[in-house]
Computed example of a mutant assay.
Amino acid sequence: MPRVSEAHLAARRRQIIDAARACFSRNGFHATSMQDVISEAGLSVGAFYRYFRSKEELISAIAEDVIGMIGEILDQVRTDEPVPPLAEAMSRVLRAVEPQLGPDGVFPMALQVWAESLRNPQLAEFVRRVYGTVRHHFDDLARRQIAAGHLPPGADPHAVGTVLFSLIPGYALQRVLLGEPDVDTYIAGLHTLLTTR
């Protein structure tokens, strides 16, 4: 029997994750069964369970996708040379996150992951770990801002990173719950806060 390529395995895994996202977006985690996802993916039960054994594994894979996307954005911003001023760096992060706030983006799924983590200790630990990693990226961003002279030399990078991290879900929650503000308004407010002395 010919060996299945890594590319084929990765494509099949992506097919399942995309099917799960579609089902979870339509019906939520609790109302979606594994059979719903299997049907959406168009796979046999055996083929499906080769990749995922439980709904929790699917949720974790989706959460990893969300975190991976945010991590890539932050990696680009925090390694820029020369180091851009903080307001500009955060503006870039927000503009990159903006397309992920609609119904087909990753943020509505992130909300479901957060809610599910309140009742699922295994997922809660996963969420703590991966969001801790994201917050660490913001600590690094703050550290570089301090080194570049964009923030006071005595500033605590962890304290600053913690606040910067909260700006992203704060913006996203307002957009999802209230339908506003638009990204330009939020960034204008952010520029005022970060550049007023």
Score class of each variant (00 low, 15 high):
residue 48 F to Y: 15
residue 49 Y to K: 06
residue 54 S to M: 08
residue 59 I to M: 15
residue 60 S to A: 11
residue 61 A to G: 01
residue 62 I to K: 01
residue 64 E to H: 06
residue 65 D to C: 10
residue 66 V to Y: 14
residue 68 G to E: 08
residue 70 I to W: 12
residue 70 I to V: 12
residue 71 G to Y: 06
residue 72 E to G: 10
residue 74 L to K: 09
residue 75 D to M: 03
residue 75 D to A: 13
residue 77 V to W: 04
residue 81 E to F: 02
residue 84 P to L: 11
residue 85 P to A: 13
residue 85 P to W: 08
residue 85 P to E: 12
residue 86 L to D: 06
residue 87 A to E: 15
residue 87 A to K: 06
residue 88 E to I: 10
residue 92 R to A: 15
residue 93 V to W: 04
residue 96 A to W: 04
residue 97 V to K: 00
residue 101 L to R: 02
residue 101 L to T: 14
residue 101 L to Y: 00
residue 101 L to F: 01
residue 102 G to P: 02
residue 105 G to K: 05
residue 107 F to H: 05
residue 110 A to W: 15
residue 112 Q to P: 02
residue 113 V to G: 04
residue 113 V to Y: 06
residue 114 W to M: 14
residue 114 W to S: 10
residue 115 A to G: 09
residue 117 S to T: 06
residue 118 L to S: 12
residue 119 R to K: 10
residue 119 R to T: 14
residue 119 R to S: 14
residue 122 Q to P: 00
residue 122 Q to R: 15
residue 124 A to C: 11
residue 125 E to F: 08
residue 126 F to L: 14
residue 126 F to R: 15
residue 127 V to A: 14
residue 128 R to D: 15
residue 129 R to V: 07
residue 130 V to I: 10
residue 136 H to A: 13
residue 136 H to C: 00
residue 137 H to S: 13
